[in-house]
Design a protein around this nucleic acid. Structure first.
Length: 439
RNA sequence: GGGGGGAUACCAGAGCGGUCAAAUGGGGCAGACUGUAAAUCUGUUGGCGAAGCCUUCGGAGGUUCGAAUCCUCCUCCCCCCA
């Protein structure tokens, strides 16, 4: 409860300011707070003028909540809602990646109003190195720092254990990274990662894990999984022993590992399920294994993870991957593909994949995506976007990123609609072929 | 008028007797990218083909076993002095 206090006062001052009541240095007395029962997750606040006239009401949630709106009949897909203090996330959802506090080449306004992103990612390792914890804490957390008022999820740096494996040393206690920026040494332990994620202040924070490479021997995968499990216990202990810093709740998601080995995946999924966190993640996939393998392992793990908690498949994927994994019971996705591949000239559309740099688009003056919903889709032609890429113009990266993210959010939104309408599988089977074709 | 420096593939530019179908950039063409060291990276860029062969370094001739490289002339460009 006390954790919510700051956010509530902040919100009240905003309302007073909007109504022209609040002046600088005015003291606000918050009269009586509603009494809360232990399992309540939200309450309503009413702001009254002294005359008794109702000025405003708003609802405050102080714990994450997941509700399932509908379960698909012909597959394991679900449509749900995750409620956080920064807003509601409708699932299945795709979360744009904003590693260093910015979804590359995209403004927050575009993210919110064009792309309709409901939650974005940040990265613990990268934000810790730059701008650093002192800046983030002084700013009042990442939401305030980067002006993103909706939910944020931070990855723990577990992916960097994999992607930056050439400049880190792993041991039982944690990982010593050599900064890719200046070569300085930084030790990441589960406790330290929890402390950093408290400072960053994302709504959903990930446990510190090791994302195993592919291929990976059984022995390595087993040892790594056991280490990830030990780290998870330490993450949970530190998380429970600490408080959020900015007046809103944070929730911790553990991560299933086990590489491509079914028995390890089962063991890991059972361990993660037993932690009773408010959501669970599947890691260590989409690192180069055959796609069928990824689907089978996702299905296996989903069958073990609790049904009443959101499931987050980390780092996935292509539009087809999303659709398939939604049908297997995944609720949340993130991937650099729409942004990175977009910056490299690849456009994802409902009719297939376009390499916009190719010569074939040189004189194609048709819209980038005639079925697309964002303003860039109809405002600009393929030929113009191709020209911008060839001329190395910054605008090319912006247009491609906005388009791709907008398409990804549209895709998961449509998936949700079709789950609710009860015709998800039929729709999915048609879309899977279309989105994976080359134009 | 006098003196000097150049001309190399789509462009810029190295090479200055054999290891040269010719470095390196850029441009062109294509490919890769899945919890972001990424506006990045890789391949390819005279013609046919498996090795290999054929035509290429402003033009024409020559020296040499062998020339993008040396010599002669021609054409064009640039710089300095008057």
């Amino acid at each position: 409860m006390s954790a919510s206090f700051l956010l509530i006062t902040r919100k009240i001052t905003d309302i007073l300011r909007i109504n022209g009541i609040f002046e600088k240095n005015t003291q606000i007395d918050i009269g009586v707070f509603p009494l809360l029962k232990k399992n309540d997750i939200s309450f309503k606040i009413r702001i009254l003028k002294t005359s008794g006239k109702l000025l405003s009401t708003f609802k405050v949630n102080y714990r994450m909540k997941f509700e399932i709106d509908l379960l698909s009949k012909d597959c394991s897909a679900r449509a749900g809602k995750i409620t956080t203090m920064h807003g509601v996330i409708e699932t299945p959802i795709f979360m744009p990646v904003g590693t260093v506090g910015s979804v590359k080449a995209v403004h927050q306004t575009e993210l919110k109003e064009e792309i309709k992103a409901q939650i974005i990612l940040g990265n613990t390792y990268h934000l810790y190195l730059r701008p650093g914890l002192d800046v983030l804490q002084s700013a009042g957390g990442l939401h305030r720092f980067n002006s993103w008022e909706k939910p944020i999820l931070t990855d723990s740096g577990g992916y960097q254990v994999y992607s930056l494996s050439h400049n880190r040393k792993l041991n039982e206690n944690g990982v010593v990274f050599r900064s890719h920026i200046d070569g300085s040494k930084h030790e990441f332990t589960p406790e330290k990662v929890m402390d950093i994620e408290r400072v960053i202040g994302a709504d959903i924070i990930m446990a510190f894990d090791e994302c195993t490479p592919y291929p990976c021997t059984y022995q390595y995968a087993e040892n790594s999984m056991e280490l990830t499990h030990k780290w998870l216990d330490r993450c949970i202990a530190r998380f429970k022993a600490s408080e959020p810093l900015y007046g809103y709740d944070q929730t911790l998601f553990p991560i299933v590992q086990g590489s491509i080995y079914r028995d390890l995946r089962i063991q890991s999924a059972e361990k993660i399920a037993s932690c009773e966190c408010e959501g669970n993640a599947i890691g260590g996939l989409s690192v180069g294994e055959p796609i069928e393998e990824m689907y089978q392992l996702t299905e296996l793990v989903c069958s073990i993870l609790p049904k009443d908690k959101p499931r987050y498949l980390m780092g996935v994927g292509t539009p087809a991957n999303l659709l398939e994994c939604i049908s297997l019971g995944v609720d949340m996705f993130d991937c650099v593909m729409p942004t990175r591949n977009g910056r490299n000239g690849m456009l994802f559309t409902s009719k297939g994949i376009i390499n916009i740099k190719n010569e074939k688009w040189k004189k194609d003056f048709s819209p980038i995506d005639e079925d697309g919903l964002s303003f860039v889709d109809v405002l600009y032609s393929k030929a113009y976007l191709r020209h911008l890429f060839h001329a190395n113009e910054i605008l090319a990266l912006q247009i491609a990123s906005i388009h791709n993210l907008s398409f990804y959010l549209w895709l998961v939104g449509e998936a949700r609609k079709h789950i609710i309408n009860g015709d998800f599988v039929r729709w999915k089977n048609i879309m899977m072929k279309q989105v994976a074709s080359r134009m």
